[in-house]
């Protein structure tokens, strides 16, 4: 790969980084409050579908994003209801959402577009600035701003301290008069909304259409990024950049080489990078102590 190619890959990386960054940042927020959402993959898929559907129906990209955000919030509300109020099993609820999302988007694709695999391509071009012949989406800057914003929220504000207290030691937080359930509900809904935004971005901006199972494990890569980051929003941005880069390398080689048998092997790169990154940092990571455990008052 030559220097010029490397720059192009760098620019593609920025676009590839966005869905993982937004999803992981939302999940950092939720997990800091003690709620794990394994259903991020399903949220990405459902909101990717809805985003394209709304843009095709209305012609408005903004409405597409708004729909993704709202559906994300709604699914977050559902997860919070199970995880926070019904004290259900967070992992199992998320797994169920992923399976249901795969089924629902397949049904929706047939109902809306009359085929089993994909939507027609969007004709509205998403906004952005051109660099080296590649478009950089404004969502790249949104993702970075959200990362800094969540870092500021968690480290510099009273609300942030409450969120962390709820995730680390809900019993003491409760004793101090913090409403554990309400904080967890808010963090889960906010986190899932960001995943909704990421899903809409993937279909509206990154790909320009909806394709069956297009989330391709990114919800889980985002979960891995959260662990890699040590539950730190700035670390999650760095992690998303690394995963975005490996994704871009795979895409770039597939464009250059065309789809051959070996491009299937190149597709394994982002997943291997993710696994190695998480394995290399797992020992020093300090996760919220009450992560994944429902809080039951005595």
């Amino acid at each position: 790969m030559e220097a010029g190619d490397l720059l192009v890959v760098g620019v593609i990386s920025l676009s590839a980084m966005v869905p993982i960054a937004l999803t992981a940042l939302g999940e950092v927020l939720a997990e800091r409050s003690g709620v794990v959402n394994i259903g991020l993959e399903g949220i990405l898929l459902l909101t990717a579908w809805l985003g394209v559907y709304v843009v095709l129906e209305t012609g408005s990209i903004l409405l597409g994003y708004l729909a993704g955000l709202l559906l994300g919030a709604l699914l977050g509300l559902m997860h919070a209801a199970i995880a926070v109020y019904l004290k259900g099993d967070q992992i199992i609820a998320g797994l169920g959402l992923n399976i249901a999302a795969a089924g629902l988007t397949a049904l929706g694709t047939l109902a809306a577009w009359g085929n089993y695999g994909q939507s027609p391509p969007l004709e509205v071009k998403p906004p952005g600035i051109e660099v080296l012949g590649q478009r950089i989406s404004p969502l790249v800057f949104v993702a970075i701003l959200v990362g800094v914003g969540i870092w500021w929220l968690l480290e510099k504000t009273r609300l942030g301290h409450k969120i962390k207290a709820v995730g680390d030691d809900p019993r003491s937080a409760d004793a101090l008069g913090i409403n554990v359930e309400r904080i967890r509900l808010a963090a889960t809904v906010a986190g899932a909304s960001l995943a909704g935004l990421a899903g809409a971005y993937m279909s509206i901006d990154y790909l320009g259409s909806f394709v069956k199972l297009m989330s391709g494990g990114r919800g889980f890569i985002a979960l891995a990024d959260v662990a890699f980051s040590g539950w730190n929003p700035l670390g999650a941005l760095l992690g998303a950049a690394i995963f975005g880069f490996s994704d871009a390398v795979a895409r770039y080689y597939n464009i250059v080489a065309g789809t051959t048998a070996s491009s299937y092997l190149i597709n394994t790169i982002p997943y291997i990078v993710t696994l190695v990154a998480v394995a290399a940092t797992a020992r020093r990571a300090r996760m919220p102590r009450a992560l994944g455990r429902p809080y039951i008052k005595e």
Binding site: A93, N98, I99, A100, A102, G103, L107, Y116
Partner: peptide
């Protein structure tokens, strides 16, 4: 009706079963 209807049914059953672990 696409066979994926079965996936939807299965996913919803799992979500419902996750809650009453209380």
């Amino acid at each position: 009706v696409p066979k994926e209807a079965a996936d939807l049914v299965i996913g919803i059953v799992i979500i419902l079963l996750s809650a009453p672990t209380v």
